[in-house]
Structures are given as structure tokens and as C-alpha cells.
Amino acid sequence: MGEKSKVYIVCCNRLLRESIARILSKKTDFNIVAAQAPGSTSREEIIESGADALILDSLEFLLEDPSAPSGVCALGRALRCLLVAMEDDHSRFLRAIRCGARGYVLQDASAVDVVSAIRTVVDGEAVCPPHYARVLFDYVACQAVDHPTDRRPSQWGLTRRERQLVPLIGQGLSNKEIASQLSLSEQTVKNHIHRMLQKVGVPDRLSVFEACRSERSAADTKDGGYLV
């Protein structure tokens, strides 16, 4: 039998912490290094324990790094962190990834899912609920404006933020949903879209998306890029 994976549990919820420890203690491939409340342990202690994985039920433990912002991901990078029993909240999921989390398990998951997610993270893979894959795709699509080929100035003079809105409009998201994804207020999104309509000179938001897509396709063809 191979070496046991060392797991460090830091959960605010005591019942959750104790139950996860109990379940893992019955598995032959895990060794519980410690099961602590966030206030009873430190990042140094966790790193020094040599744990292979850190199980958390709160993102705050990763965020509350005194050396933040530069060290905000220090623990996340040093260890394979898995967040469990999380609320269904896309923005927290994306924040967790930025903090270095390798796994995200929702509170509606099963106990079997948790054990399987821990194994996945320990093996160096990442894990999230299947429907969160779309959130990741959307997020990467939003960031596409940072890609060098997208730094070409738009013929309509759209700002960087306005161009970030384009793929989200194309996905048919409402102003509220776009606001939530970009951490903006709904009114700000409304204002951006209003200005975009004026700049592009089209009557509705979907026409903005179509116009931008045509512009990008034309530019990609000119540059010898691929059309998808």
C-alpha cells in the first residue's frame, strides 16, 4: 500500500470538522494531521505539518493573510487547498481559485463527493462542481480582452471595460448577471451598455455583440488568425 496522504482540516463548523475527520480516519489512504478551528492554528503550523492537502470550510482563512495582498495566495500555493460545504456563489468560487484553491465542493455535495474531491486534490488535480466549469469558461472569455490579439483598438473606441462586457452580452446575460460577474453595480452595467449602443450605433445590445464579433473576425482573418 502506498504512503498515506496527510490531510489538515481547518473548519469553523465544529460538527463538519469532526465528521470529515471521522470519515477520513476510516479510509486507509488518509492520515489526519490535525482538525482545528481557524483560530486555533496558524498558516506556519499548517505549512510545517507537511500536509498534502488542506480542507477548509471558509475562504476567509485564505484571505486573512497579514502579508496580503502580495502574500494572499501564499498558503494556497504552498498546499493543495480544498474548500468544502460552500454556498453556491460564483464570485466566491472565482475568488477561491485566485487564492490558490484547487478544489471547491458545494454544501449540497455528498460525503462521497468530499472524499473523492480530497483524493483528486491530493493527486495534484483540480475539482469543482460540473456546472462551475461554465463559470470558468465565462471568466476566461471575459479576460480574453487581455490577450495580445485583443489589444487592437476597437473601431468604435470601446473602452477595455466595455469590451469585457461584449462576450457576456453575447451569452445573453442580464445586466444583473453581468454586474455580478464583473463585481459592478447594475446601474454601472446599464450605463456601459448605453454608451456602447451609442458608440457602435446599433439599436440593441445583441447588435453590439454581433458587430464586435464581425469586427474581430475580420481582424483575425487579416492577421492570419483562426476563426471559430
Binding site: S19, I20, R22, I23, A85, Q107
Partner: peptide
């Protein structure tokens, strides 16, 4: 509710 807590509580009690 949620499911995870239910299953973990059951796992504890089942022992």
C-alpha cells in the same frame, strides 16, 4: 439541510 451536513451527521451516528 444541506445534504453534506446530513450525510456527515448520519455517518457519525451510524457508527
Amino acid at each position: 439541510r444541506p445534504r453534506l451536513m446530513r450525510e456527515l451527521v448520519i455517518a457519525t451516528i451510524s457508527d
